[in-house]
Design a protein around this nucleic acid. Sequence first.
DNA 1: AATCCGTGCAACCGCGACAAA
DNA 2: TTTTGTCGCGGTTGCACGGAT
Length: 247
Amino acid sequence: MGRSPCCEKAHTNKGAWTKEEDERLISYIRTHGEGCWRSLPKAAGLLRCGKSCRLRWINYLRPDLKRGNFTEEEDELIIKLHSLLGNKWSLIAGRLQGRTDNEIKNYWNTHIRRKLLSRGIDPTTHRPVNEPSTTQTISFGAGNKIKDQKMINVKAESGLSQLESNLFREQCPDLNLDLRISPPSRPNYQQSHQQQSPRCFACNLGIQNSKDCNCSNNNNNFGNIASYNLLGLKTNGVLDYRTLETK
DNA sequence: AATCCGTGCAACCGCGACAAA
DNA sequence: TTTTGTCGCGGTTGCACGGAT
């Protein structure tokens, strides 16, 4: 059973957007707001498909876009987030105000990949390039009553021999892991922080002053780890990867 | 001046997720 | 429960541009 096309391709423009098309789209969205992309082109008098309109708005016309060069801080934040999330560009973009997933994806492919390679770091694994990279699949069962029981495959760098590999499989036949996040292990951490405000998880990731930073505005810190908001994920001390998928 | 080549980025395409019918 | 429609995401493509030859 085939999927019907999102629009009638024979009567739609493709390629670069003209100034007039931009103005029509902006004016329509200002008046009616975002949403219902399928019917928008017709309503706005545009010979474009809905997807094209959505993309143009989100990636180029939205008023809250920052544009301009990425800062060094943004670079490092993207690298950190990518090491945590992989190619989840929309999630990464959600942590960088005024940046779009497309922009970050392009920037990653054109700048950051090269930057990491020049540092001798594999941009995919975030590990040194010359490290042996045999892979092993670890599956994370998602709890008892998950609808689809999705397995998340994680490529684990191992460098294990066949024997070690078999042992590993025996010991971890089908992992059902709750990933718990705890404060980074630091010598004298408690001692040095007893007098001052503890740093939140965002700060420890290097995302100071972001909206995820809880240092200054509430009690969700390491002194009270029962509940904090990491990367927009409200948790009770347990990070559930599935929540990463939903914004 | 002409051509080639690499780079950056906007836009397109295909597919999965999800909700409504 | 199945089918259908819509949205959003990530990978890929193609064009414009600038520098090198």
